[in-house]
Design a protein around this nucleic acid. Structure first.
Lengths: 225, 225
DNA sequence: GGATAAGTGGAGACCCCCATCCGTTTGCAG
DNA sequence: CTGCAAACGGATGGGGGTCTCCACTTATCC
């Protein structure tokens, strides 16, 4: 409960919990994160903790000491991917053409999602409610909302596009990405292309009217159990 | 192997294994199927066998005696839903307008899928490789292929629509349907509407060219593990 | 170089699920 | 009514996963 560590310069810990670790401990921690990243990508979110420990060449105790819960581990592993999504969106905000910006942002987020089974599950699971990535997720969502506004103002995005449609996109894409493979990634790209095409404003003929935007909120839809 | 049962009139067993059952056994069997249907829909494919037995008011032994494997149970439970998909497609084949036929077939199949978490998983999982529902599935696929041909010939379906795009649709829809709820079903309807819109041939302007159709085969993509 | 606390790995307690075995009950035919 | 095979359900063994405890090792500081 005392002071964190009065000698530690603020901001020196790139990530939580790395401060004051002994050299060997830090090495193991990194090795665990590395291995866990691979295993989660390949096998999904429910890969046994023991398997991660074994592949990392450490005992389970070491794993649990460093990451008390599975969530803590997963959060740490995917923090950078969440950040990657966020900055992809923010990069897009700098692009001149509103539609291109919208399109590339969507494409990039979906590509990240399709490439990693674990991240996909993490992204689309009740987990991320307690992930502490709310900040990143909000950055992504705020960015996408702004991109949406611009694309609509420019007349390139259909007017009845709703914020919930991002959720639609993410979850549909997650269905494609259950088993990440080259084929699945290609399929994801094709799905996204189809949907972006459907989102365009400049289509001929009266499309069949859309069903009402479902009040679809990831936080609601995926509530645990 | 001996004769099945020489006294049984052929075709009298609506489903496999119901012939010659004692009255109480038959009652329990039906109760199990009923309860299993509900539980699978709600909780998904991995609901514990014990839970099914308990809800049905029978012992696990009874459950296992009637359905030796989980697959046998699931197959029996969802046989009618698979059949429903098949006949929805075949009904559509009778419709006069090719596009309407295509559209309603897709909508109905996706609606069935979105309404039942267990069926959704069953539909989109390695399971159905050994389900013995290959017949039904082939009926569905053959029907959809024919509907595709007609819709293309009529100039209503875009020429670069590929057979693999059905898989795309099913898997995307499965992502929406992880947690069946009114909201999820509405979302599914909206997704399908978007995609059908994207599949239409009569769109203005050169859409961005589609990524190549991924060689996406459910049987391949969802291979166990 | 030695004291010390941080770090370690593996054994094992606990829990959940699957699937089978077996003593008891019960529908049904004669 | 009676006998028996069919049916029943709970106990049980086996497997796998999570997480903790503890005796041993090792980096680090003086």
């Amino acid at each position: 409960m005392g002071a964190e560590d009065s000698r530690m310069p603020p901001g020196s810990a790139a990530r939580s919990g790395t401060a004051g670790l002994r050299a060997d401990a830090l090495h193991n921690r990194n090795r665990i994160l590395e291995v866990a990243g691979d295993l989660l990508a390949e096998r999904g979110l429910d890969v046994p903790m023991a398997a991660i420990a074994r592949h990392a060449g450490v005992g389970v105790a070491t794993l649990y000491r460093r990451f008390p819960t599975r969530q803590a581990l997963v959060r740490e592993v995917f923090a950078d991917r969440f950040a990657a999504c966020a900055s992809a969106v923010e990069d897009a905000l700098a692009a001149p053409d509103p539609w291109t910006a919208f399109r590339t942002a969507v494409e990039q987020v979906c590509a990240v999602q399709a490439g990693d089974r674990g991240f996909n599950s993490a992204f689309v699971s009740a987990y991320f409610q307690e992930f502490g990535v709310g900040g990143e997720l909000d950055r992504v969502m705020r960015g996408l909302t702004e991109l949406t506004r611009r694309a609509k103002d420019a007349g390139r995005l259909r007017a009845d596009f709703a914020a919930e449609d991002f959720t639609l996109l993410v979850m549909a894409n997650s269905g494609i990405s259950v088993q990440p493979s080259e084929a699945a990634q290609a399929a994801s790209r094709r799905l996204v292309a189809y949907l972006l095409d459907a989102f365009r404003a400049d289509r001929a003929g009266p499309a069949d009217p859309l069903p009402p935007p479902a009040p679809l909120d990831l936080y609601d839809v995926l509530r645990p159990r």
